[in-house]
């Protein structure tokens, strides 16, 4: 988590929000730089939509600092909203208004609408603007809000699972549109469960869980935090692998070794393996899925199993024999 430039498009620090006894946000941090596409991830109920509604000035923060385009989203809501387009994950439309009317209305409620771009987007998304409210399918209701957002003249797009219900072709159109927005220098906050979408679009991501930010950084940085699987057949018995920091799930069967290692500790493991002589070696690079799943799963984050390298280091230093769960050394 880098130091926040004062010009951050979104800056949230230590945000708290409770609904009665339910603690929705519990010290959430989020930093989005101008011009970046920022992925906002987390399991259902982690607090993504609550955060977005605080950013929109619909909910009032209990505690913490929230700045949006350098302003306070609660007090300067109207002024800010001129520069923001929002797409919810479940678009509800008025029964007796046509899609085209809703698009124009949303445009007028924001900074204005680019007529040419509106027409072009309708064509690309293959949306019929003359249908009314409930006669649209789920995906088409999403398209109404997406066309309105992409055709609006705004600085920041807040998209909350915007592609739910879109078919793969439309998903592609959506990704193109987001990239065009980025090329035009606009900032995008994208909440999504689609890893392919996040991987294709996002410069940086933040992962939240139970109302807190558990990970934030560029995709490359996050990949770095994940584990690489290594399996090797050795010439001699392995030596001291269990004492190496960052090694998990070590399984030694005679001269066959299988283990997982924090990617930034891979070097030491390879060195140790070559000392015993390597007959064969397979190394599987980390996938984002693994990273996300690890953060989505409830039980693993609490044990600090590799989530934070610093913690893993401290553990390894204190107990060299490898107190980490899952070491099955002979």
């Amino acid at each position: 988590m880098t130091a926040l430039a004062p010009a951050a498009a979104i800056h949230i620090a230590d945000l708290h929000k409770s609904f009665g006894r339910t603690r929705a946000l519990d010290g959430l941090d989020l930093a989005v730089a101008p011009g970046e596409v920022h992925g906002f991830l987390g399991p259902n109920g982690a607090g993504k939509s609550t955060t977005i509604r605080v950013l929109l000035g619909l909910l009032r923060a209990d505690r913490g600092a929230v700045r949006l385009l350098g302003k306070d989203p609660w007090h300067d809501a109207v002024e800010l909203h001129r520069r923001i387009a929002y797409v919810p994950g479940d678009v509800t439309l008025w029964r007796n208004l046509s899609g085209g009317e809703v698009i124009d209305l949303y445009g007028r409620l924001r900074g204005g609408l680019d007529g040419a771009r509106r027409a072009q987007l309708l064509e690309r998304f293959e949306l019929d603007p003359t249908k009314k409210g409930r006669t649209y399918s789920k995906g088409n209701r999403q398209k109404v809000a997406l066309v309105a957002a992409f055709a609006s003249d705004v600085d920041l797009l807040i998209l909350d699972e915007p592609t739910s219900g879109l078919d793969p072709l439309m998903e592609e159109v959506f990704q193109e549109c987001v990239m065009e927005e980025r090329d035009r220098g606009r900032t995008v906050l994208l909440s999504s469960h689609l890893l392919s979408e996040v991987e294709a679009l996002c410069d940086r991501v933040s992962i939240i869980r139970k109302g807190r930010t558990v990970e934030s950084g560029s995709l490359a940085e996050l990949r770095h935090l994940t584990r690489t699987s290594v399996s090797a057949e050795l010439a001699g018995p392995p030596n001291g692998l269990s004492r190496l920091p960052g090694v998990h799930d070590l399984d030694v069967q005679d001269r066959r070794v299988r283990l997982q290692v924090d990617t930034d500790k891979l070097d030491a493991v390879l060195r140790s393996l070559t000392e015993s002589g390597v007959r064969s070696l397979t190394s599987t690079p980390p996938t984002l899925e693994e990273l996300f799943l690890r953060h989505y799963q409830d039980d693993m984050a609490g044990t600090g199993a590799g989530g934070r390298p610093a913690a893993a280091d401290a553990n390894a230093a204190a107990e060299p024999s490898g107190a980490e769960g899952g070491v099955t050394s002979r």
Partner: peptide, 28 residues
Amino acid sequence: GMSFLPARPGPARAPASLNGAFGLAWRL
């Protein structure tokens, strides 16, 4: 979900009167 008085298609563009909160409330 359908009815015997089905919804007709509407205009592709909003009329000038649908120009914000007041226009919307009036329309509704």
